[in-house]
Amino acid sequence: TGIVNVSSSLNVRSSASTSSKVIGSLSGNTKVTIVGEEGAFYKIEYKGSHGYVAKEYI
């Protein structure tokens, strides 16, 4: 489990790349469930599926 550490919002992406499609966003202080790691990204549970967020903001 981690907490989103941004002042505005954090993009949730379809894969572990900054060039991948943005599938949603999370507000600061949102609790997320981390299910894996891939490079500079965490794989998280997101809306019944999975998404990826940059580690530096969790």
Rank of each mutant, 00 (worst) to 15 (best):
A40E: 15
A16Y: 05
T18P: 15
I3W: 13
I34C: 03
V22Q: 05
T30S: 15
G48A: 07
I44E: 00
S9E: 13
G39M: 05
T18Q: 11
S27W: 09
V53A: 05
K47F: 11
I3D: 04
Y52H: 02
V6P: 08
I23L: 10
S27Y: 10
K43I: 13
T18W: 14
I23G: 01
Y52K: 00
L26W: 02
H50R: 05
E56S: 07
K47D: 09
T18G: 13
G39C: 05
R13W: 15
G51N: 01
S25G: 06
R13F: 15
R13T: 14
I58T: 03
Y57D: 09
I58S: 02
K47H: 11
I44F: 02
T18A: 10
G39F: 05
I34R: 01
N11L: 15
V35W: 07
V32Y: 03
S20G: 10
E38K: 07
K31V: 15
S7D: 13
N5A: 10
Y52V: 01
L10S: 05
G2A: 08
F41C: 04
G48D: 10
L26Q: 02
S49C: 08
Y42G: 00
G36Y: 04
V12E: 00
E56H: 09
S7E: 12
Y52R: 00
G28H: 12
E38G: 03
I34K: 01
S25I: 15
F41W: 14
Y52A: 01
G39Y: 05
T1N: 11
S9Q: 15
N5V: 12
G51E: 01
V22H: 04
A16W: 04
T18K: 11
G28V: 12
I23D: 01
L26C: 04
S9F: 12
S19Q: 15
G24W: 05
K31F: 11
T33E: 07
S19D: 15
S20P: 02
G28K: 14
T33A: 08
T30N: 06
N29I: 06
N11W: 13
A40T: 09
K55H: 03
K43F: 05
G51I: 01
E37F: 07
G48Y: 06
E38Q: 09
K55P: 00
V35R: 05
G51F: 02
S14L: 13
H50A: 08
I58D: 02
K55D: 00
I58V: 10
S8N: 13
S25R: 12
A16S: 07
I23M: 07
T30R: 04
E37Y: 07
S27D: 15
Y46V: 03
G51T: 01
V4K: 03
N5L: 08
G48C: 07
A54N: 12
Y42C: 03
G39I: 03
G39W: 04
N5M: 12
S19W: 10
V12L: 03
Y46C: 04
T1G: 08
E38A: 09
Y52I: 01
Y52C: 02
I3L: 10
K55A: 04
I44W: 00
S20I: 01
K21A: 15
Y42T: 01
G48M: 07
S25D: 07
K43Q: 07
S9W: 14
I44T: 00
H50Y: 15
I44Q: 00
N5R: 07
G48V: 04
G48P: 05
A54Y: 11
N5W: 08
H50F: 15
I23V: 07
S8Y: 14
E37R: 06
A54V: 10
I44H: 00
S19Y: 10
T1W: 14
V35G: 02
E37P: 03
G36D: 08
V22E: 04
N29E: 08
G51V: 03
I34F: 03
I44A: 00
A54I: 13
S7M: 11
V6N: 08
S15D: 11
G2H: 08
S8K: 12
L10P: 11
K43C: 08
A54E: 15
T30E: 11
G39T: 03
K47T: 04
L10Q: 05
N29D: 10
G51C: 02
S20A: 15
G2D: 04
Y46G: 01
S14I: 15
G24D: 03
H50T: 11
V35A: 05
S20Y: 08
N11S: 14
E37M: 10
K43M: 09
G2V: 09
E37V: 10
H50G: 04
G48I: 04
E45V: 15
S7A: 12
G39A: 07
I23H: 02
E38T: 08
V6F: 07
E45M: 13
A40I: 11
A40M: 13
L10A: 13
V32F: 04
I58C: 03
S25V: 15
K21F: 09
V32K: 00
V4D: 03
V35S: 05
K21L: 12
S27Q: 12
T1I: 14
V4S: 05
K43H: 05
S19R: 09
